[in-house]
Design a protein around this nucleic acid. Sequence first.
DNA 1: GCCGTTTTCGGCCCGACTGTTTTCAGTCG
Length: 578
Amino acid sequence: MDKQTVARVLDEIATLLELRGDEGFRARAFRTAARALEELEEDLASLIARGELRTVRGLGPATARVVQEVFETGTSSYHEELRREVPDGLLELLHVPGLGTKRIHTLHTRLGIASLDDLEQAARAGAIAELPGFGKRTQERILEGIAYRRRTAGLRRRPEALATAAELLAWLRADPSVVRAEPAGALRRGLETVDGVDLVAAVDGDGQELLGRFISLPSAEPGERTADDAARVRLGGIEVRLRVVPPEAFGAAWLHATGSEAHVEALRERAAARGLRLDADGLWDGARRVDAADEDGIYRALGLDVVAPELREGSGEVEAAGAGLLPRLLRYEDLKGCFHVHTTYSDGRATLKEMARAALERGWRYLGIADHSQAAAYAGGLRLEDIVRQHEEIDAWNAEHGDRLWLFKGIEADILADGRLDYAGLEEDVLERFDFVVGSVHSAFGSSQTEMTERIVRAMENPHLTFLGHLTGRLLLERDGYPLDVEAVIEAAAERGVGIEINAHPARLDLDWRWWRAASARGICAAINPDAHDAAGLDDVRYGVTVARKGWLGVRNVVNAWDLEEVRAYFAKRKGRA
DNA sequence: GCCGTTTTCGGCCCGACTGTTTTCAGTCG
Ligand SMILES: [Zn+2]
C-alpha cells in the first residue's frame, strides 16, 4: 500500500464530508493530511512500524487512524461508512463544470438530486435557476456539462485503455492456441481517446473455444459473440473487441482492425488499381492469396513504404508512401530531455533533485524545470525569493552534475487576463533570469474567442516567451478547451518564432496532433513537455511522442530531441530578441 | 479535524473570476 493510494482515500473522505454538508474545516483537515502524506520523505511502512505516524504534521488522531487502517487492510471503515451515506451519483456530479461540493449538497438537499439524470430533469424543468445562489446561466452551464458527459460517456483516455489492452493481451498470449496477439484500432493509431479496445489474434484451429472463454472471462462482465470470428466484452467499463483469424490472414486482419476506414479504403483503391483485392482476410490476386502474413508484406505488395499506425488517418499518407515521401518520425529514443517539469517549489510532489535524478535514470542529458508563477497562488507559484532559492539550487546542481544532466531554469508563467505574462509588470526584468518561459492560461476561461485569441497573441509580444503551454486548455473527457482561433495563434507564433508545447499529460495532449502538420509547415517547433508533478510523470512524454508522430513530426521539429548545445543555442536566440 | 499554545479553544483559509447578488458565495487552477 503506497502513500499515494492512502492519500487518495483521505481526499475522497474530504470530498464526501463536503458533499454531506459537514463544516468545511473538517474536510480541509483530511485534505491537509493527504498532502502531508504525499510530501512524506520517508517510507510509510517504516513510519508505521515505528509507531510514529502521529508525529507527522497534519496527521491527528482521526486521520492517522484512517492511514493506519488503509495501510493494513486496504480500506477504511470511516470511508466506507461515508460511501454508504452519500449517494454514488453525487460523486459523478463533480465532473459537471461549475458544480462543486457545496452546490451539489444544495441540489441534493433542496431538490433531491442524486444523479446525472435527476440533474438533467431539474435543469430542463427550470428548477435549478430558482434556487438561491443559482440562476439561468448556471442552469445552462449545467445542461452543457451534462451533454458533454453524455457525449463522452463511452470514451477512455490512453492510460486506461492501454492498461486494459495489456491485461487482455497477456491473457491471450498465454493461451497455447494463440500464435500472435496484437492491439489494433484507434488505440494502436494513437488517438487521444478511444471508444473501446480492439485486439486481433492469430490462432491455430478455428478459435471458437478461445472466443467462448473470452466472453466468459471472470474479470469482465459477460460478453457476446458479434460474428463467427469475433466477440466483445466489457472490462472495467471499457468495451474490448476481439477478432481471431488463422495465421495466414493475420496481416490483413490486423490492418483492417487498425484502420482508419479512410486509410484502408485508400489501400483498397491502390490494390484495385494493381488488379488485386484487399479485404479483412487477405490480399488476393483472383482466388490466389498474395503472401501477406504480416502488414509490412501487404504494403510492399502494393508498392508502398510501410505506413506507421499513427499516420493511418486518410490524410495523404498512402500517396506519400507510394512516392517515398513519408516523414522519418520521431521516436521515444530520440528524446534527450524535456521541459515543463514541476517540483515541490510549487505544486510538484517530488523535489528538484528527485526530478533531476529521475531524468538521469531515463538517460536524458538535460531537464527544464518550470514551476508555476506567482499568480498561480493555489499551486504555490514562485515568489521572487523562491526563484532566487531555486536558481541557487540549480546552479549548484549544474556545477556538480552538469556534465551528466544539465538543468535549465524555466518557469510556467501565467498568461494573465490582459495578455501580460506573470512577473512582466515588475520593475526588474524577472523573466530575463530564466533560460526559457512557458506561457499558460490558467484563469478567466470564460472570455470570448476573440478576447482569448488576442490575449494569447499579446503574450507572444513578450520576447521572453519561449513556448505556449497547453494551448487550448482542454481536459479530455472533462471539458472542451476555451474558444480559441488556433490558426491565428499558429500564424502569430510562426511570425514571432515562439514554440508550441505538446503537453504530454494524457488528459491534455494539447496542442492536438491535428494541428501539427500545418504548424510545422510554418516552421513552428514543438516541445514535448510532460507537465510532470512527480518522477513517474516524466514518462508521460511517451504519450507526447505519439502525438508528435500523428502530427508527422520528426527530430528536427521537436526541440527536446536536440542535443544540449542546440537547445542552448535555441534558447539563447530566443532571449537575444529581448 | 488539527494546531498551538496566551493549556482549553479559537483560528485555520490563495486569489481571480463568475454569476449571483446588491455585497458575496462558490468554483477553479
Ligand atoms: Zn499549466
